[in-house]
Structure formats: structure tokens, C-alpha cells
Design a protein around this nucleic acid. Structure first.
Lengths: 247, 247
DNA sequence: AAACAGTATTCGACATTATCGAACACAGAC
DNA sequence: GTCTGTGTTCGATAATGTCGAATACTGTTT
């Protein structure tokens, strides 16, 4: 049994997430609900801090409470807790940007991000969704379970969009225990990632490094010492989560 | 008027935000509500991705949708916030009026406006809607996604109303990375604009300069240094928003 | 200046909808 | 085996949220 008004409140938030700022009438039209209904939902969401109302125009946009609960979600996540220390360690050892991802809704959701340890301008990617077929983190996440054949978007000229070849690549990933991505999502950038297991020996996340091609690869193959570092980090976190790994 | 079930759903999220993981009974006790009520709310929240249920224990914790909406909240304010400084910079460098727009409801909505730095009488255009087919800001907004063929209003004798020619112009915009408008909306006025990307590599806005034809154009082409300034401003804001640009 | 077209908001009647509480199924402990 | 805990299902009840018209307000147009 689903509660209608909660569903509708969520639908409003999703609409606001798409567009930047919407009014009662626009939402009423988009969701095909009476203006009074929308207004009631919006004003309770406003009281709770889930949306904010522009003082001038009266229009609504997303509110701060979502950000607070969003970061709270990160705190709750057990994988993230365990990964914090190891991610720092990996960033120091590899001198690369480190990211930790989980599988959520057909994407790789970034739940932790450590900047490359130089002082360059970088942006926190926590909360971003990455495609599964064109990132090392994504491949590491789904290598065990496999991927349903579908039409994959082409992001660069190197993006693998053929389901058979993708499956072959996932099998290689499964066998060697780590995943590679070379300019498949963004030109000039590459990544190496490995899966993280829980106590049920199931993949619950992945950790990986990313950076410029020339820093990670030699002759289209990742530097061996970097692969070892990633694997070591992933195995360490897996053990902390209760996984019993072979070897 | 406040909607009870939404308030209760939020209360559940707040409880879960405090504790790490809670069950139906615990929540029922804390919020003094029947277990069935809590269960109904929780299962709709689960379907929406706002909470996740542990497969083993059946207990609930916060879900990934909160993180996604939370980062979405950041994006809403970030575009305007990041654009503020760069818009001033662009106005100083170009000595032109600068405007920042987002796509909303089939129009280019102005969300920021810096006057031409010359003390002349000008009108604040924030909040006004510009047509997509006859403005540089509009073309920059829709060049990536394309435009549905429709009947466009003719604003001046130079307004492009032919769908095929408009599409060709958008393709040119896409290829060169910036858009031009010359007396298509208002006679004697021209504009140059470039798209702003977010971390999903999607166009979330555009920034551009506008002014008299004789100030912006030479022989029907925009001055090269002005185009470079606009591109530099747009790229700078995009990078600050997390976009990873090619080249 | 006045009528207009937009807003967001309020309000009351209606019946849809969420609530309650008991009964259920399953798990682990003793 | 019982017992106590869990999360879940179900049906009767009325409280609740919904609708749509009416409102107040703002800015624009005539």
C-alpha cells in the first residue's frame, strides 16, 4: 500500500530537481493536479525545509534540508565509513584522484571522492551518477552479476557500445579482479577500479583511481603498481566488511 | 494547511538521519504511530528511493535519492552563484551588457544581468523570458539538444523563422561552441553567447554579451576577441560547476 | 486610470484516502 | 516445543487530503 500524498510530494521534488524553479501553476499543469493540492504539498515541504520559496516571485525551488539528509545518507552508509581511510591512503600512494561508488538505479553513484594530492582545481563529484559501461568503477560494480544487453550511449569515440564486446570485457574484469577504462567516458582520461565485497561475497561497491591517460597507462595498459594499489585497497575494505577473500 | 502524511514521512527521515538504522517497531514507538502506518510510509519511501531496507534484518536506513536531490539543490544555487563573479569580469573586459540565462518553459529565462559599464540608462532584465530562436543566449541553450520544428514569431526582418535554416544555424553553434544573434530580436542590437555545462555534461545555462551592432560586429561577424572572452567565461563557470570539458 | 491576465493563496463540501489495531507469518532464543 | 521479537497484511472507520471555485495580489496592458 502506497501513500498517495507522499508519492505526490516526491514527484514535486523530482520536478523541481529537473527545472530550477517552478511555480504552483506550472507544477499543477505538469503533474495534472489541482493548484490547491500542489499548494498544500508545497507549503508543508516548505515548512520542513525541503523546498524554498523565492520571496519576489513566489516560485519554489529545492531546499536545504535535502542537502542535509543527503549528506546524512553518506554518514549512514557503512561502505563509505570503511572506505574513508583507505581512499586517502590510495590517493597518497597513487597520487591520483580516488572515488568510491555503489550501484544505484542503473548507475554508479559516487559516495566518496578524494582529490588528487596536488593543489589543482577539482570538483567534488559525490552524488554524481556515472554510466556503468564506460567507467572503471561501473565495470567493477557489474562484472560479477553481468549486464542486461541494451543500447548504450556513446560518450566518446572509444566508448564500448557493443553488448557482446562489453560482456567479453566484463568477463576479463571478473577473471583479473579489476576493471580498466581508457578514454571511454571523457577523452584524455582513464581509470582503474576494483570491486568491494561484503560478508555475503557479493559486490556492494567499487573503488578506483582516475586521471590523465599518460599518468595511468603505458602502451594502453595500466601501470602494474597502480593496479596493485587499487586491488590492495579494495581487498582491505572488503576484509573490514567481513568478506573472506581467496588467496 | 499542512499535509499530515508528508509531515510524518519527513519525521521518519529525520529519525533515520539521527540513528543509523531503525526498524518499524522502533519508529512506531518514537513517533507514537501505529506500526501499520509507519510501514505504509516506509514502503512508499522505499519505492521512491528515499529509504533502503536491509535485506537481512528488514530494518530501514536513508536512501540514495536524498543524496541525488541534495546535490541537485547545490546545482540550483551554484549556477547563479558561480556566474556572479564571472559575469562582472566579462562585463569589464568586454565593456558590454552581460546576461546569464537558463532554459525554462520553452524560453530563455534571464537569471542574472550585469549592465554595460558606462553609466547609461538600462533596464534590469532578470526574470524576463527571451525567445530561443532569435537570441544568442537561447541558441546556446538549445544547440546541444536541438529544437522541435514549429512556427516561430517574426520579431524583425532578420529573424530566422525557417526551421531548416534554424537547425543549420544550431548545428554551426554546436560545432563552434558559441552562438550569434544579429538584429534578429531587436534592430541595431546583436549578441554572442556560449553554453554552460554542469557535471553531467549537460547544458544548464548560457552566458553572453549583447549590445549595438557596431560595437560587436565587423562585417557581420563578431569581433574575435569578444567571442574569446565569452567562451572563456562560459568555460570557467562550467569548470567550477564540475564539467570536464574536452580540449 | 482602469481593466486585464497572470500569479499564489484561501476556503468549504465531499469522498477519497490514510489511519488504526488486531491478526498474521516468520525468525531467533530459550 | 513455546515465547518474544520482528516486519507485514488486512478491513472497518472517519479523519484526511483533494478538488474547484473564490480570493487577494502584482504587474502589464489598454
Amino acid at each position: 500500500m502506497s501513500i498517495q500524498s507522499v508519492q505526490r510530494a516526491v514527484a514535486i521534488l523530482r520536478c523541481l530537481s529537473g527545472s530550477r524553479r517552478l511555480g504552483v501553476s506550472e507544477l499543477s499543469e505538469q503533474l495534472e493536479l489541482a493548484k490547491g493540492t500542489i499548494h498544500g504539498l508545497l507549503s508543508t515541504l516548505r515548512d520542513e525545509g525541503f523546498v524554498e520559496q523565492d520571496a519576489d516571485t513566489g516560485k519554489y525551488q529545492l531546499g536545504h534540508a535535502l542537502l542535509e539528509l543527503g549528506t546524512s545518507y553518506l554518514d549512514v552508509n557503512e561502505l563509505r565509513q570503511r572506505a574513508l581511510a583507505r581512499a586517502d591512503w590510495l590517493a597518497q600512494k597513487s597520487q591520483c584522484s580516488v572515488r568510491v561508488a555503489v550501484l544505484r538505479g542503473g548507475n554508479a553513484l559516487i559516495i566518496h571522492h578524494v582529490f588528487r594530492p596536488d593543489n589543482s582545481l577539482q570538483i567534488l563529484e559525490v552524488g554524481s551518477n556515472l554510466p556503468l559501461h564506460a567507467t572503471a568503477l561501473g565495470k567493477a560494480l557489474v562484472a560479477q552479476a553481468g549486464l542486461e544487453p541494451r543500447v548504450w550511449p556513446r560518450l566518446t569515440k572509444n566508448t564500448q557500445t557493443d553488448n557482446a564486446k562489453l560482456e567479453a570485457e566484463l568477463q576479463l574484469t571478473r577473471e583479473q579482479g579489476w576493471a580498466l577504462e581508457a578514454e571511454e567516458a571523457v577523452l584524455t582520461e582513464a581509470g582503474v577500479a576494483a570491486p568491494i565485497f561484503d560478508r555475503k561475497q557479493e559486490v556492494i561497491g567499487s573503488i578506483g583511481i582516475s586521471g590523465a591517460v599518460r599518468e595511468l597507462l603505458i602502451d594502453d595498459a595500466p601501470k602494474a603498481e597502480l593496479v596493485q594499489l587499487v586491488l590492495e585497497a579494495a581487498r582491505h575494505i572488503s576484509r573490514e566488511l567481513g568478506a573472506r577473500l581467496l588467496g
